[in-house]
């Protein structure tokens, strides 16, 4: 079924997949941490923190990821900060998607029924304890569908680091195209690999959505 050209290059493509998955997993982890922290600070923090988080989300929402990648890759070396492409890419993508994740978590925190708060307060709990054992566990569960959608966007966006020369799946695909002059077969193969990763994740999202709906 598969064109021979894909099979003969499957080793290279697999290496690209590995790098793409590495980048994706690291970025999901870091951006979730940034997002959760930002969401908590935005919802419960001191007013100065709220202003900072709002500004961060506003800037990231209005600026393309590619620009931030260029800034890191071409701009920062001028000020003596020379990040290697892989950690630099992960850092920039984590900061970028951290803002999206913070909105995902914030919506979930705000969707939590007031009665949960009232119940926790009437049991004599203080804010840190309420956050740790009442709010965060439920909010994380509520946010599952939106979280998975953001993860899919994130995985697709890792293709952009190929533009700053990181050899993940898209870059490997382009390199094979340059060598073989078979753009259709190779790029469709690359698209298919992304599809398999993201589509299976979106099925998981559907399942999560059903589970969260039954929880009430």
């Amino acid at each position: 079924m598969l064109p021979e050209i894909l099979i003969s290059n499957s080793w290279l493509l697999l290496q690209g997949v590995e790098r793409t998955l590495e980048l994706s997993i690291a970025t999901v982890l870091f951006s979730s941490a940034i997002g959760l922290l930002a969401a908590l600070l935005r919802t419960f923090g001191w007013w100065a923190f709220r202003v900072v988080v709002d500004f961060y989300v506003y800037v990231v929402r209005g600026v393309p990821l590619l620009l931030l990648l260029f800034f890191m890759y071409y701009g920062l070396p001028y000020s003596g900060i020379d990040l290697a492409p892989i950690p630099g890419g992960i850092l920039v993508m984590s900061v970028y998607f951290g803002a999206f994740m913070s909105e995902v978590f914030r919506a979930a925190i705000e969707a939590l029924p007031r009665a949960q708060w009232d119940a926790a307060r009437s049991l004599g709990m203080r804010l840190p304890l309420i956050l740790v054992i009442v709010v965060v566990p439920q909010a994380v569960r509520l946010s599952a569908p939106a979280f998975i959608n953001t993860c899919i966007l994130l995985i697709k966006s890792t293709s952009l680091v190929s533009i700053i020369g990181l050899s993940e799946l898209t870059m490997v695909g382009r390199q094979i195209v340059e060598r073989t002059f078979a753009p259709f077969q190779i790029l469709l193969g690359v698209a298919l690999i992304y599809f398999l990763i993201c589509y299976s994740l979106s099925r998981l999202g559907r399942y999560a959505e059903k589970r969260t709906r039954y929880a009430h």
Partner: peptide, 18 residues
């Protein structure tokens, strides 16, 4: 599904180079 689950950049290359 096929549009939502593949990167814009790959689609772009497919249209332009393909």
């Amino acid at each position: 599904q096929s549009m939502r689950n593949t990167p814009l950049l790959v689609q772009l290359y497919l249209v332009y180079f393909g």
